[in-house]
Computed example of a mutant assay.
Amino acid sequence: MHAQDYLAAIVFGLVIGVVARLVLPGRQNIGLVVTVIIGMLAAVAGTWVADHYDIHSSHLFTVASHRYDWAVVGVQVGIAVVGVAVAAMLARAFTTDRDR
């Protein structure tokens, strides 16, 4: 992995956070900014995990002349779903009844 792969993961993380929120059932009481930050962190973490454990496939897709691996994207979305779920649980735990 090169630095440009991690930079691309951060940009791609914007989309990953929103996808994770759509995949997760129910209403999450977290804002869009938190969702995007979780997506960006999950994209970087997913890239690292895929590189560390050699998780790659031969199935690629191209966006703006950068090639993405479906297996890596799956790891990134999985981490983002867990991150959004944890953030939603924390938001619910620290929200009072009158705030709802």
Rank of each mutant, 00 (worst) to 15 (best):
A85Y: 11
A87Q: 00
R92Q: 12
D99S: 10
V84W: 02
L7Q: 04
G74E: 11
Q28S: 14
G78N: 01
L90D: 09
V15R: 03
S58H: 07
V34T: 12
L22H: 03
M1Y: 11
L41F: 06
V23T: 15
I55P: 00
G46Y: 01
T96G: 12
V23Q: 10
L41K: 00
S57Y: 09
A43Q: 01
V81R: 05
I38Q: 05
G78Y: 02
T47G: 05
A45E: 04
A64H: 11
G78I: 13
V18Q: 07
V11H: 02
V49T: 09
G46K: 01
H59K: 07
V49R: 00
V82W: 03
A8Y: 07
I10C: 09
V81A: 07
M40V: 15
A8W: 09
H52Y: 06
V19Q: 12
L24C: 09
R27K: 09
A80S: 09
I79F: 02
M40A: 11
M40S: 12
V34H: 13
D69R: 05
H52E: 11
L90I: 15
Y6T: 15
L90M: 13
P25N: 06
A8H: 11
M40I: 15
L60V: 15
T62H: 05
T47H: 02
A64I: 13
A9Y: 00
T47W: 00
A85G: 07
L14F: 08
D5Y: 03
T35A: 04
R21S: 15
R92P: 01
V23G: 03
D54M: 07
L24I: 14
Q28L: 05
G17K: 14
A20Y: 01
S57P: 03
A42K: 11
R98H: 14
G83F: 06
D69N: 13
D54C: 03
Q28C: 11
R21W: 07
M1G: 12
G83E: 04
T96Q: 04
Y53C: 02
M1R: 15
A88Q: 09
G78A: 06
V81W: 09
G13Q: 03
V36G: 07
Q4S: 11
V84K: 01
T96K: 06
G26C: 13
V19T: 06
V77I: 15
A80D: 02
